[in-house]
Computed example of a mutant assay.
Amino acid sequence: MAPGARPVYLRAGDVLCAAGRGAAAAAEACLQQSTHPARIEFSSLGVPVQLPYFRIDGARGAPDADLLRLARDVIDAAQIDDARRRRMGLFLGTSSGGIAQHEHDYAEAVARDPDALAIFNPDQSRSATRLYSALGLQGPNFTLSTACSSAANALLYATWAVREGHVDDALVVGIEFENRVSQQGFHSLLLATRELSRPFDLRRDGIMLGEGAAVAVISRDPPRRGPVWRLRGGGTFCDTTHPTNPSAAQIAHTIRLALTDAGVAAEQIGAIKAHGTGTRANDLSEGLGLREVFGERVPPFTTIKPVLGHTLGACGLLETLAFAACLDRGRIPATRHFEQPDPEIGIAPLTAPAPWTGGPVLLNTFGFGGNNCALVLERDGC
Rank of each mutant, 00 (worst) to 15 (best):
T193Q: 03
D380V: 06
M1N: 05
I207W: 12
D205E: 13
I347N: 05
R225K: 07
G276P: 03
E344S: 11
D57W: 08
T254M: 09
H102D: 15
E178H: 13
C238M: 04
P353K: 08
A116Q: 11
L362M: 09
R297L: 07
C382I: 03
G98K: 11
E108L: 15
H253D: 07
T260F: 01
G98S: 15
T260E: 15
L190N: 14
V8T: 06
F301N: 01
V376I: 14
T236I: 00
D82H: 11
G289Q: 08
G210P: 07
D73V: 00
A252H: 05
P343F: 07
R87Y: 08
R224C: 01
V293I: 08
P306Q: 11
I207Y: 08
L327I: 06
C148A: 13
L290S: 08
L317S: 11
D105S: 06
A271T: 10
R84N: 14
Q101H: 10
N371F: 01
P122S: 10
L209D: 05
T303F: 02
R336I: 02
A262H: 02
E28W: 00
L156Y: 11
Y106D: 05
R163G: 04
W229T: 14
I269H: 04
N364Q: 07
I345V: 13
G20V: 04
V8S: 05
E267C: 00
R86T: 14
S34I: 04
H253M: 09
L284F: 03
D115A: 14
A27D: 02
V173I: 14
P37G: 11
I119E: 09
A27W: 03
F186E: 10
H253E: 13
L135H: 09
S34C: 03
G136A: 05
F91D: 07
E103F: 08
A192I: 00
A325S: 14
I304M: 14
P333H: 03
A152E: 10
S96C: 14
F301T: 06
S44W: 12
G4M: 02
R6H: 02
V293D: 04
S150N: 05
Y106Q: 14
S96M: 15
C382L: 12
D239T: 02
I304F: 06
R163D: 04
R225S: 14
V215A: 12
G359D: 06
R220K: 08
H242I: 11
V307M: 10
L375G: 01
H310Y: 02
A27M: 04
L321N: 10
P7G: 01
P355H: 10
R21G: 00
I269C: 06
H166N: 10
P199I: 07
G46N: 13
G4W: 02
R194N: 04
P349R: 01
A265W: 00
R194T: 15
F237G: 00
I347L: 11
G316Q: 13
T240L: 10
R329C: 04
F142S: 11
R21L: 10
G98T: 06
G136T: 09
A62N: 04
L131N: 09
A262T: 10
R69W: 00
F186L: 13
R11M: 03
H242K: 03
E41Y: 08
L362F: 01
R180Q: 12
S145G: 09
N371H: 12
Y53L: 13
D201C: 06
G139P: 12
